[in-house]
Each structure stands twice: as structure tokens, then as C-alpha cells.
């Protein structure tokens, strides 16, 4: 499995006296493909932001590649949840994706030819080349999602975080997206936040349940806890038989 690339030890976090995460321990190994599932308000996005260094824990430590997250955040690819923010901003698709090529420095920045080539190839991967010069506001929600994924991929990140990437995408788009992610997973560690566990279950390698505390499950198998977390009410596990079996034999 190699050395863990993410290590979270005894992390606590609260917003205004309201505990969001308590006593969280979590380890992510290279080449994993994790689904982060849990109810709304369960702390999924908070956990993600702690790993990105956008939030600091009250207690405990978060280590990415052995360093504090803020120091290495440029090595992480991040696709945020809200792709509809700032829709009227005067910016083209290419310029949005170019943001993914920014590196930490205090010099006057100018994008190189290499940067622009990387942007084109990222757009190509997501079949968005024809929209390269379009204003971002003219695109549909699903298309904008693809642009943000391209922005995360353009730096060839070692680990990729996606927060609810299927929220604005139809069923066909979801299948395409996860096929692409599965392909990327050959070289990249991927963590996907999702409220719809069943939609992702056939692509992922492991599952992490987040509901104030965190439970990691090695295999991509459905447990009662996962379904309860996904639907927030008791759900019975029903096997449909092969080839659609997603359950462990029991």
C-alpha cells in the first residue's frame, strides 16, 4: 500500500459551539478511490476543507504528504461544490482552467506556452475544447462542472478531491465522469464526496462514512451504516443478484 499520503489524527472541529467533527482519525493510501458519504451537515465538506488547509482543526493534526496542508495545497486537485457561483464574471473557460496552473510565488505572473498547452489537453480530456473561448457564464451547470474538473486536472495533481461532482450532471454525464475518474485513478488518488452512494459504488475502491465521526471501510461494499447515512432513515439491504451484486454475501 505504500506510505499514507493523507494522515488525520484525533481531529476535532466546531462551528460556534456546534461540534461538526469529533475525534476523527483517517488515513488515505496512494491510488485509493474513496467515496466520502454521509448526511447533509454531517461534516463531509468540513473534513475536505481541513484536508485542503482552508480550515484549521481545533485539536489534532492533518498531514498531507507529511506536511501541513496549507504548504502543499497546490499539489492537490480540488473541484469545489458550487459551480454556479460568480456566473456573470467576465472570464473565459480557458482563463478559468489556467487558474489551475498557478503556483505559489510572489513574482509577476505570466502564463507560458506550456501552461496553455496543458489547458488544451485538460479540456480535451473532458471534451470541452470547443468551449475554450466561451465565457463561463454561457455554459450549462454540467459543462461548468467539467471546466472545474479540467482546472483541477491541469496541474497533474497527485491527489484529487471532488465535492459532490455529480450534483449538476445528468445520469449519462455521471457515467462518463466516473469512467474518466476511474481511468485517472491508475495514477492519481481520488476522493469523491457524494450523497448518492449507490451512483458511485461500482467505481470506487473504499468508502468513508462521515457523520460527526468518521468510519473507514476498506472494500467498496455496502453496509447498513452506509445506507442509513445516505438516506437518513433505516433502509433494508436487498440483493438483486449478479451481475448487479454490490453487496457482500451474507
Amino acid at each position: 500500500m505504500g506510505k499514507p499520503i493523507v494522515k488525520i489524527e484525533d481531529v476535532w472541529f466546531h462551528y460556534n459551539n456546534h461540534p461538526v467533527l469529533t475525534e476523527v482519525n483517517m488515513v488515505i493510501y496512494p491510488k485509493d478511490f474513496i467515496a466520502l458519504i454521509g448526511p447533509n451537515g454531517g461534516g463531509k465538506t468540513t473534513l475536505l476543507k481541513l484536508m485542503l488547509g482552508l480550515l484549521n482543526p481545533d485539536r489534532g493534526t492533518v498531514r498531507i504528504f507529511g506536511c501541513s496542508p496549507a504548504k502543499v495545497s497546490h499539489r492537490i486537485g480540488y473541484v469545489p461544490q458550487d459551480v454556479n457561483a460568480n456566473k456573470n464574471f467576465p472570464i473565459t473557460v480557458t482563463d478559468v482552467v489556467l487558474m489551475g496552473r498557478l503556483t505559489p510565488k510572489w513574482k509577476c505572473r505570466r502564463y507560458s506556452k506550456k501552461d496553455k498547452e496543458a489547458v488544451l489537453s485538460a479540456l480535451e480530456k473532458l471534451e470541452m475544447t470547443t468551449y475554450a473561448d466561451h465565457p463561463i457564464g454561457e455554459l450549462s451547470g454540467g459543462q461548468r462542472q467539467r471546466v472545474f474538473i479540467a482546472r483541477a486536472l491541469v496541474s497533474n495533481p497527485e491527489i484529487l478531491f471532488l465535492d459532490e461532482p455529480t450534483a449538476n450532471v445528468d445520469a449519462h454525464g455521471q457515467t462518463e465522469l466516473f469512467t474518466l475518474l476511474k481511468q485517472l485513478n491508475q495514477h492519481t488518488t481520488i476522493l469523491v464526496v457524494s450523497h448518492d452512494f449507490l451512483a458511485v459504488s461500482s467505481y470506487i475502491k473504499s468508502v468513508t462514512c462521515v457523520n460527526q465521526d468518521v468510519h473507514q471501510h476498506d472494500a467498496a461494499e455496502v453496509t447498513q451504516e452506509m445506507l442509513d447515512l445516505s438516506y437518513q432513515c433505516p433502509v433494508e439491504l436487498v440483493a438483486h443478484g449478479l451481475p448487479h451484486r454490490v453487496l457482500q454475501k451474507h
Binding site: 487558474m99 498557478l102 503556483t103
Partner: peptide
């Protein structure tokens, strides 16, 4: 947020 992640 993204700008911050990229080290801006």
C-alpha cells in the same frame, strides 16, 4: 478559495 489553494 481556489486561488488560496494554488498559493496566491
Amino acid at each position: 478559495e481556489f486561488a488560496k489553494l494554488r498559493g496566491v
